[in-house]
């Protein structure tokens, strides 16, 4: 068979059968479900009634009728800020740990400690820390005299989202630090010697050497960060369940509530397609921002 296809044909055949298993898994558990959601978003359907085609009614309801959708959309974009925050903090920690510091490995392990923890556990313990009376944060703030009345973090409309973002940053910080740390350690030292010889100050070395060399790692962190903020269902669901009001309602929790909570799978499918479209746009923007060949350089 190989002689028939010639060198190029045999190459494509090899590529196809190497890619096949992975693509099969993604086809079964990502592409087909997305297709099912897209098909369902144009139907009116519940588990026991046959589907009827209703065109864009679901989307119409979503864009015009459902103000929770717009709140959840805005909250999701705000919640996405947990990615850059985590990346900036992780970069700072990675820079600190990167030098020949004694005990760097211990610091690294402690910061990474929170990542393998179950998200439900993170949500439960942070929900207690933010508690108005018995919580630790209020206890420390009052003991230091920084605040006279305890702050109701998860009960106030403007503090709830930052509190949830802080808990998310706490959990993903270790992961981003590890990615950036490996990026830092691969920068050849001679680049720094050359810059130091030219008398470049520390911040100049950082901007002209460290950041450009770290760009692929930063892109990897950005993509995973965006992904995490769109799928951190457990953290928000257990910590605030979208409350107070819909102040911390994310698209993903609203999809779960309308889908399984209210058995409206057709409407939840429309929300899913909307979220997927939004993510496509965001990834395309990140793709451009990182020099136009994200897929290549990640």
């Amino acid at each position: 068979m190989s002689t028939l296809l010639g060198r190029q044909g045999r190459q494509t055949a090899m590529v196809a059968c190497f890619l096949l298993p992975s693509l099969a898994v993604f086809l079964l558990y990502r592409i087909l479900p997305l297709g099912w959601n897209v098909w369902l978003s144009f139907q009116s359907w519940s588990p026991l009634h046959p589907a009827q085609f209703i065109g864009l009614d679901n989307y119409d309801e979503m864009l015009r009728d459902d103000d929770v959708f717009w709140t959840a959309l805005r909250n999701t974009l705000v919640f996405m800020s947990s990615a850059p925050i985590a990346i900036v903090l992780a970069l700072g920690i990675a820079l600190l740990v990167n030098s020949d510091l004694r005990g760097a490995a211990i610091y690294r392990t402690i910061v990474f400690l929170s990542y393998p923890l179950m998200t439900v556990a993170v949500a439960i313990i942070w929900r207690w820390m933010y508690d108005e009376r018995g919580g630790l944060i209020n206890f420390v703030l009052r003991r230091l005299g920084l605040v006279d009345k305890p702050l109701a973090f998860l009960q106030s409309f403007d503090l709830a989202m930052p509190s949830v973002i802080a808990a998310d940053v706490w959990q993903v910080l270790g992961f981003h630090m590890i990615i950036l740390l490996t990026g830092l350690q691969s920068i050849p030292p001679h680049l720094y010697e050359a810059a130091r010889v030219d008398g470049a100050p520390a911040w100049a070395r950082f901007w002209r050497i460290t950041v450009p060399m770290l760009r692929p790692s930063l892109f990897l962190c950005a993509v995973i960060g965006i992904l995490n903020s769109f799928s951190s269902f457990d953290l928000v669901y257990v910590m605030t369940n979208g409350g107070p009001g819909h102040a911390t309602e994310l698209l993903i929790t609203w999809i779960y509530k309308t889908g399984f909570g209210q058995s409206r799978f057709d409407y939840a499918a429309a929300l899913t397609v909307a979220q997927f479209a939004l993510l496509l746009v965001l990834t395309f923007l990140a793709h451009l921002a990182s020099g136009g060949n994200a897929g290549e350089r990640a």
Binding site: P33, L227, F230, F233
Partner: peptide
């Protein structure tokens, strides 16, 4: 890249049927 963007919670029912 686009496959990465599909949240798991939205694929539960089709994934189960498959």
């Amino acid at each position: 890249l686009s496959c990465m963007l599909i949240p798991f919670q939205a694929t539960i029912i089709p994934a189960y049927l498959i």
